[in-house]
Simulated assay, not measured.
Amino acid sequence: MERFNAASEEALEQTLLSCLRSPRWSRRVAEHRPYPDLASLLAAADEAAYDLTWPDLTEALAAESLPPLPPGTYSAAHTALSAAHAAYEARFGHVFVICLDGVPPAETLDRLLEAIRSRLTNDPEEERAVTADELRRLARGRLLTALRGAGNCAINH
């Protein structure tokens, strides 16, 4: 936490934007430094994500892509996922996002296909809420990964 709190604005912005491509979210998290501990940082990151407007979320979604499939995934699976993703984008107008933290690689494809097919049945307002929550979860996971990286120094440039 000491390095996170002491990082330059530029380094911190770079790190935070790598977690969620929302300048508003990044500024909100950075403005509340110093954080006494990891729990406080994660709570602030969650709160900042909950406060994002749909245009903020749309901006963040523009930088997202589908999670990579495990090596050796057969081509029919790529075709099925591409078709499901195209249907999702046509219905909702943005990329499909999902946080797969903790999902074993062997289950990634099944989880992705199951989730995208299930969420295609959502109405647009319901899907906006689910999408916002998935982005929040992605940002939280990426922030934890960034903090653990480089010897627990997320922003040691």
Rank of each mutant, 00 (worst) to 15 (best):
residue 2 E to T: 13
residue 3 R to Q: 12
residue 4 F to Q: 07
residue 5 N to H: 05
residue 5 N to V: 01
residue 7 A to G: 02
residue 9 E to S: 15
residue 10 E to R: 13
residue 11 A to F: 02
residue 11 A to S: 04
residue 13 E to K: 05
residue 14 Q to N: 08
residue 18 S to H: 08
residue 18 S to I: 01
residue 19 C to P: 08
residue 19 C to E: 07
residue 24 R to W: 04
residue 27 R to F: 10
residue 27 R to P: 01
residue 29 V to K: 03
residue 37 D to P: 02
residue 38 L to M: 09
residue 39 A to K: 01
residue 39 A to Q: 02
residue 42 L to I: 06
residue 43 A to E: 14
residue 45 A to E: 02
residue 47 E to V: 04
residue 48 A to R: 05
residue 50 Y to I: 04
residue 50 Y to H: 09
residue 54 W to Q: 10
residue 57 L to M: 05
residue 60 A to W: 11
residue 63 A to E: 06
residue 63 A to L: 12
residue 64 E to C: 14
residue 66 L to T: 06
residue 67 P to C: 08
residue 68 P to C: 06
residue 70 P to G: 13
residue 75 S to D: 14
residue 75 S to M: 10
residue 78 H to C: 05
residue 78 H to L: 13
residue 80 A to C: 11
residue 81 L to D: 09
residue 81 L to H: 11
residue 81 L to C: 04
residue 83 A to P: 00
residue 85 H to V: 05
residue 87 A to E: 15
residue 87 A to R: 15
residue 91 R to A: 15
residue 92 F to V: 04
residue 95 V to E: 05
residue 96 F to Y: 13
residue 97 V to I: 03
residue 99 C to G: 05
residue 104 P to R: 09
residue 107 E to D: 15
residue 109 L to M: 13
residue 113 L to G: 07
residue 113 L to H: 03
residue 114 E to S: 14
residue 116 I to C: 06
residue 118 S to T: 14
residue 119 R to Y: 10
residue 120 L to M: 13
residue 121 T to V: 01
residue 122 N to E: 11
residue 123 D to V: 04
residue 125 E to F: 03
residue 126 E to L: 12
residue 128 R to M: 15
residue 128 R to W: 09
residue 129 A to R: 15
residue 130 V to G: 01
residue 130 V to M: 00
residue 132 A to V: 07
residue 133 D to C: 12
residue 136 R to I: 07
residue 137 R to T: 05
residue 140 R to A: 04
residue 142 R to S: 08
residue 144 L to P: 06
residue 146 A to C: 02
residue 147 L to M: 15
residue 149 G to P: 00
residue 151 G to E: 11
residue 152 N to Y: 04
residue 153 C to D: 13
residue 157 H to R: 06
